[in-house]
Every structure is written in structure tokens, then in C-alpha cells.
Design a protein around this nucleic acid. Structure first.
Length: 256
DNA sequence: GTTGAGCGTT
């Protein structure tokens, strides 16, 4: 596939990694290999792609055997138009294992800085607030696994939702906190109001299309008690049958 | 089918 028939990094002992950016999404390692191999000995060419879709991310890693050749390739291929797109070739700053890289060369792993190496350079936010870009950046840094439930669909809607959740409560606190607070309090303190569904302001994480048919069992035992007791008060005898229908007979013991 | 700043896999 992307690799030369190998699965994983071949040998990064003395290789120089080059980062190729701005490449087309259709460009594959096979297309870059001959291009980079012309300027030096290319050990391996890897193009990070999505694990689900399998699409290229738009950048590739070209590993050279010698730094001089890599430098030459950078100087020659940097700015070269590939597949109708100007690619950007530069030395990789970070290694696959977050190891220290000196001039694109992967140096020996440093135990002391290993934990700290994770902290990448704090790149300034270029765009104002791109949702798609943001999720990609975060996922790449934190988790490689990202959901594709909404990749190119419902950007406005998603953005709104995200904003609402992302926004700190303080933001709306100044605005609707007073009103909501009052409402919440009145709703919470009012015993006559059983359970009130979240009108708005609170979105349920998951909606159950098929509600349970037995809410009285674990919902409100008191209601059941009252119901049972009403029609058949004799049935429930605290003395005759201490624990036959009582949901919590321990109470009696505890009470005593 | 879409996109475009960035740093990687058995």
C-alpha cells in the first residue's frame, strides 16, 4: 500500500524524515517516491491517511537515508507543483514516536524529555474558528480516532450545537442565568411538579425512540404503593405480611 | 463527489 510492502516503520535509526505538505489528496506514496528518489536515496515514503475512509490527509513523510540528499530534495522539491498543487517539502519536526528529531534526523529517545516531548509547539490559530479544521487538529494531536458521523454535513447546525456546549456557562449565565435560575428553582422546589422534561437550554445526550413501558417500577415506587394500597388496603398488611409486596422491608427493621 | 492547516504507520 502506502509503504513498500512493509507494515510499519522499517528502520529509523539513521534516516531523515521530510514532511511534504500541501499535496493533493489523491497523491500517493508511489507518486512521491520517484519524485523524491530522484534526488536521493528514499528509505520509505509514508502518507498518513484516515483509518476509516482511507483518504490521504494531504501530507506525506519522505524518509531519506542521508541528510544532504534530503536537504537537496527539500530545496528542489519544495515548491514543486505535483498533480497541479504546489507541495511544501521541509524537514519533519516531530518523529513518529514523538522522539527528538534533529534536522529531520531521528535521534535517540530521551527518557527525560520523553514525557515532555509530547507537548508540541503551540501553533497559533490561523483560522477564526473552523469547526472541521478544529476537530481534525485536535484529533490528530490527541486521538487518532475520530468520528465521521458529521464530517461534511450540518456545519452550521453542528457549529451551533458545539458552541452552545463549548461555551462556558458563565457566558449565558449573565444573560439567561437569572431567568433560568428562577425557573429552575421554582421547578425544583415545587413538589407538585413531578418530572419536567428539559424544555430548552438542555439537550438530551441521547434520545430513546422507544420509551420503557414500565416506568412505574423503578420510576416512582410510591405511586405504585399508593395505587396498590388504594384498591386493596387489606392486601398489604404490615403485620400479616411484612415482606410480600413491600419494596423495601428493610426499612421496618431499620426503623425499629 | 466535498476540504487545505499541519507532523507519521506495524
Amino acid at each position: 500500500m502506502s509503504h513498500f510492502g512493509r507494515a510499519g516503520p522499517p528502520d529509523i535509526r539513521d534516516t531523515y524524515s521530510l514532511l511534504v505538505l500541501n499535496i493533493t489528496f489523491r497523491t500517493t506514496a508511489d507518486d512521491l517516491f520517484p519524485l523524491f528518489d530522484k534526488y536521493g536515496k528514499v528509505v520509505d515514503v509514508f502518507i498518513p491517511r484516515d483509518r476509516r475512509t482511507g483518504d490521504s490527509r494531504g501530507f506525506a513523510f519522505v524518509r531519506y537515508k542521508y541528510a544532504d540528499e534530503a536537504q537537496k530534495a527539500v530545496d528542489k522539491l519544495d515548491g514543486r507543483v505535483v498533480d497541479g498543487r504546489e507541495i511544501t517539502v521541509q524537514f519533519a519536526k516531530y518523529g513518529p514516536d514523538a522522539e527528538r528529531i534533529h534536522k529531520g534526523r531521528i535521534e535517540e529517545p530521551v527518557e527525560r524529555l520523553k514525557g515532555r516531548s509530547r507537548s508540541r509547539s503551540p501553533r497559533p490559530r490561523h483560522r477564526d474558528d473552523y469547526r472541521d479544521k478544529d476537530y481534525r487538529r485536535r484529533n490528530r494531536s490527541r486521538s487518532r480516532d475520530r468520528s465521521d458521523h458529521e464530517r461534511h454535513r450540518g456545519r452550521d447546525r453542528d457549529r451551533y450545537r458545539s458552541r452552545s456546549r463549548s461555551r462556558s456557562p458563565d457566558y449565558r449565565k449573565e444573560r439567561s442565568r437569572g431567568r433560568y435560575d428562577d425557573d429552575d428553582k421554582g421547578r425544583s422546589r415545587s413538589p407538585h411538579r413531578s418530572i419536567s422534561p428539559p424544555a430548552r437550554g438542555s439537550i438530551s445526550p441521547r434520545r430513546s425512540p422507544s420509551p420503557r413501558k414500565t416506568p412505574s417500577r423503578s420510576r416512582s415506587p410510591v405511586a405504585r404503593d399508593e395505587k396498590d394500597r388504594s384498591p386493596t388496603p387489606k392486601s398489604v398488611s404490615p403485620r400479616g405480611r411484612p415482606n410480600s409486596r413491600s419494596p423495601s422491608p428493610q426499612r421496618f427493621d431499620a426503623d425499629e
